[in-house]
Nucleic acid binder design. Structure first.
Length: 288
DNA sequence: AACGTTGCCAACCGCGGGTGG
DNA sequence: CCCACCCGCGGTTGGCAACGT
């Protein structure tokens, strides 16, 4: 016999994640690390399939995510990388620290495509739009025309691991060495050169950016309850969560700590913890 | 104010490669 | 070797908010 089925989808929840589910997932991952997504929902007490948990974590909950609109520099990089890699969003994302493939894909489809067309550039071929090209041209014909200039100039640099990577066992203070004295462009250039696997996913400046970015949006599940100035770190601290769900106490944070539900903060080897410890806004919540 | 349209993006779906029983 | 599963990927969709009429 083979393995057991991944998940019988009966009774599993779909759709937007609630704040409570988010917290359960964050708590579980930060405590136990990422492994075996299949087991995560069960162990974390979630009525979701592992796939959904993985997606939620990688695309939204990961602490190293930069949120908000892509900067001009990032946009330029996306365009450049797309011209070389095509729709390989994950490859593109791997060169933009803190950005997810989904985010880049969405940004491409909603913003960059239009921008390029406006500039008279075909977003598929990255070549000037010919006047002859009609909108109603058959897609098959269109595809036949396309010659994706595929090359992997960046890839070759991924062969030899250099620099640092953010792992569960890494200390963010060491990890930020590469990034801390660099401006955005320099940091990005290093990421481009080495590949994101080899450089810290979070640098001190990114963190500042995360903290100060007031336009940052919250998840769909929480945004309806959040004020506009909610930041990612605030979200991470579950300020939008309904603490009252966890007891009758007015002070939900204390209540959760009392009930030993904040075990994630007990660990001392997770790099994100350092990030939060050094963050002013985090300390204002009295969590540390 | 009410309704329709558009834009945005989180989440889902389905596929394929890799892996293990 | 086969089959079932895990995982990651790219494409697509659904729901909400903003905008226009």
């Amino acid at each position: 016999m083979g393995r057991q089925p991944c998940c019988d989808k009966v009774g599993l929840k779909k759709g937007p994640w609630t704040a409570e589910e988010d917290m359960k997932l964050i708590n579980f991952i930060l405590t136990n690390g990422q492994c075996c997504w299949r087991a995560v929902p069960k162990l974390a007490g979630l009525l979701r399939c592992g796939k959904s948990c993985r997606l939620r974590w990688t695309n939204y909950l990961r602490p190293d995510l930069k949120r908000g609109l892509l900067s001009d520099y990032e946009e330029k990089m996306v365009i450049d990388l797309h011209s070389q890699l095509g729709n390989r969003w994950s490859k593109i994302a791997s060169h933009l620290p803190g950005r997810t493939d989904n985010e880049i894909k969405n940004h491409w489809n909603t913003h960059i495509k239009k921008k390029l067309r406006k500039m008279g550039i075909d977003p598929l071929t990255h070549k000037p739009l010919s006047n002859v090209e009609q909108e109603d041209e058959e897609p098959v014909k269109k595809l036949q025309k396309i010659q994706m200039p595929f090359q992997e100039p960046v890839e070759k640099n991924l062969e030899e691991p250099t620099g640092y990577c953010l792992t569960k066992d890494s200390n963010i203070k060491n990890m930020s060495r590469l990034g801390e004295s660099l401006d955005d462009d320099q940091f990005m250039a290093i990421n481009l050169e080495y590949g994101v696997e080899d450089v810290p996913l979070i640098d001190s400046e990114s963190l500042e950016l995360i903290c100060s970015n007031s336009t940052m949006s919250s998840s769909t599940s929480t945004s309806s309850n959040s004020s506009n100035d909610s930041s990612f770190l605030k979200d991470l601290q579950f300020t939008d969560f309904e603490w009252s769900n966890y007891g009758n106490s007015n002070n939900g944070v204390d209540n959760i700590i009392e009930n030993n539900m904040m075990s994630l903060w007990d660990i001392d080897d997770f790099s994100s913890l350092d990030l939060l410890l050094n963050d002013e806004s985090a300390s204002t919540f009295g969590l540390f």
